[in-house]
Amino acid sequence: MTVNRLIQNLEHWKSRAVGNWGVWIEDLTSATTWAWNETKSFYAASIIKVPIMVAVYKQAFLGRLALADEIILTAEDQVGGTGVLQHLSPGLRFSVQDLTTLMIIQSDNTATNILIDLLGTETIRETMDELGMRQSTFHNKLMIVPAAPAGLNMITAADVARCFRHIAQGKVVSQHASRQMVEILKKQQLRDCLPTGLPSQHGDIIGWLPEWELAHKTGMVTRTLHDAGILFTKSRAVVMVALSEECEYEQAQQQMKQLARLVYEACLESD
């Protein structure tokens, strides 16, 4: 599939899209980009956990914390929503590395809030600024919003794409840290959005290399569903960001599936 054909297909997808969308598709190997409403602000939901992860690795690189440092879980830390820590016993110890991993692969809100307390709001904002996420904002911990908040956690598709692009290109903290973050993102357990548009990885041969991998993060609240990450095929690396609002979950999920399929098929023909 040629670039022009892919763009035509994406424009056709756009013409049929239900709800409000912010989309960024970027082939990092050819620098080809297609975007729609890329500067529109959306409530961040759990996508905010990606720059928080970057901030953790940045502070570890600077020697201000160690990934092996242990933090004691308290009852005050435990909040609802996604994640397993809310169900575990206070007093358990978890390393910063473990908390970061849980924040991404399970989208654990308790782990996220512990890391926010550890880092501090200003450190996270500084990291977002360094990533070029200057149209995005961070104000609040998750599941704990003040009665009179100073602001909301907001993102744009262009900003999220910058974050993932820098990670993919090894420009975040260090190449080693970027590689570690990509490996964590590949293990995300919430797989019902962009991955549903990609072919099954099941095969009869043990050890066979996968046809694709997706390092991504999903975020959702009522009538808001996001998924963003890096699609890796044999010879392509594509940043995909799909932010949606004012759309029923099943509709948004189906549209993300279609979007991922269009991108993957274009990659397949290029490989």
Rank of each mutant, 00 (worst) to 15 (best):
M128H: 00
R125L: 14
A161R: 00
G197W: 07
A150R: 11
E248P: 12
R179P: 06
S15M: 08
Y249R: 15
L118P: 05
S136T: 01
H226S: 03
I72Q: 11
L73T: 01
Y43H: 12
L209T: 10
A158W: 13
M1Q: 08
L243K: 00
D159N: 00
L115V: 03
M154I: 10
A228G: 05
P210E: 10
N153E: 01
A260M: 09
S235P: 11
I124K: 04
L243E: 01
E70W: 11
L115H: 07
C163I: 05
E269F: 04
E245L: 08
S244V: 00
T218K: 08
A60I: 00
V238C: 05
I25C: 08
L92T: 06
H166M: 14
S200F: 07
A31L: 13
A161K: 00
E265M: 03
S95K: 03
T33N: 05
C193R: 12
D98A: 14
R261V: 12
P195T: 02
N9L: 14
T39C: 13
T32C: 13
I184G: 01
Q86E: 13
H139D: 03
C247R: 04
R64A: 09
G203I: 07
W36T: 00
V54G: 01
Q86Y: 09
Q180G: 04
A252N: 01
I114R: 05
G81C: 06
F164Y: 08
L259T: 00
E130T: 04
G219T: 00
D192T: 05
V96C: 08
L214F: 12
T100Q: 09
V160L: 02
E126Y: 11
E26D: 10
T74F: 08
L190V: 10
R16S: 14
D27P: 02
L88Q: 09
K40Y: 15
F94E: 06
L6R: 01
F164W: 03
A75K: 15
R223Y: 11
Q188K: 01
D227N: 03
I25H: 07
A266T: 06
E122D: 10
S178H: 00
P199N: 02
G91V: 01
E183G: 02
R191T: 11
Q258R: 11
L28P: 03
V241E: 09
R165I: 06
T82I: 11
V96A: 04
T127W: 10
I114K: 04
I25S: 05
M220R: 13
A44F: 05
L28Q: 01
K14Y: 04
S270E: 15
Q106Y: 15
I7Q: 14
T224F: 11
T222I: 15
N140C: 06
T233Y: 04
I105M: 06
R64S: 08
Q86N: 08
E211Q: 14
I114A: 13
T100M: 12
W212K: 05
M181S: 01
K234C: 14
A35C: 09
K58P: 07
A68E: 15
A66K: 13
V173L: 09
L131D: 01
C247D: 04
Q188N: 07
G22F: 12
L85Y: 10
E122T: 03
A266G: 09
V56N: 05
M1E: 12
A177W: 02
H166E: 14
Q251G: 10
W208S: 14
W208L: 15
L99Q: 06
L115E: 14
A260W: 03
V182F: 03
A260C: 06
E70G: 08
E250T: 08
T123I: 13
